[in-house]
């Protein structure tokens, strides 16, 4: 019973989390000491039902943590495609970047999350944005040897040319 709202969100303890949030309506968007909100914690740990509930309770999907981390980048890092879709349906910035120069698609490529890369591309992720070290998503897929991801990106580029 001493778990913080952040731990409850990360662990998907929805009942206890809702009880806590009902005590104070500002809690739902209260950032922790590094600027992470409960929505970011739930997105980072793949708790999709908690993400859905937090959004219904008024969680701000556009919020950024202290280093400009976003819920959509945290979900993309873990390859949680269902959560990425929920957030994109709230019109979050699909090309949200942080102080690493990271974008959701760069994190999905780095994690070798094929389905997540496909989803981000299908919804307009920018393939030209580079990480601080100059890597585009395609450069990264090649450098890391993620063949399937590389193929998904190539197919997407071919489709763009065809259209």
């Amino acid at each position: 019973d001493t778990l913080s709202i952040y731990q409850l969100a990360a662990q998907g303890e929805l009942t206890l989390l809702k009880e806590n949030l009902q005590k104070d309506e500002n809690l739902v968007n209260k950032p922790d000491k590094r600027g992470f909100t409960p929505l970011m914690w739930a997105s980072a740990f793949g708790e999709i039902e908690t993400v859905r509930c937090l959004l219904e309770l008024g969680a701000d999907p556009h919020a950024l943590a202290d280093q400009r981390e976003s819920a959509v980048s945290l979900a993309s890092t873990g390859g949680y495609t269902g959560i990425v879709v929920l957030l994109l349906e709230k019109n979050v910035n699909i090309n949200s970047y942080d102080w690493n120069g990271g974008t959701p698609i760069l994190y999905a490529v780095r994690g070798n999350h094929v389905k997540c890369v496909e989803t981000l591309l299908a919804r307009g992720a920018d393939l030209t944005m580079e990480a601080d070290s100059g890597y585009t998503p395609m450069d990264l897929a090649v450098a890391l040897g993620h063949k399937k991801v590389q193929q998904v990106i190539e197919n997407h580029i071919l489709k763009l040319f065809r259209n």
Partner: peptide, 21 residues
């Protein structure tokens, strides 16, 4: 029993270990 505590979310360094382009 104390549930295990999760560490704070973090975004990885995307190109850790890769040569700069």
């Amino acid at each position: 029993t104390q549930l295990p505590l999760y560490t704070s979310p973090s975004l990885p360094n995307i190109t850790l270990g890769l040569p700069a382009t």
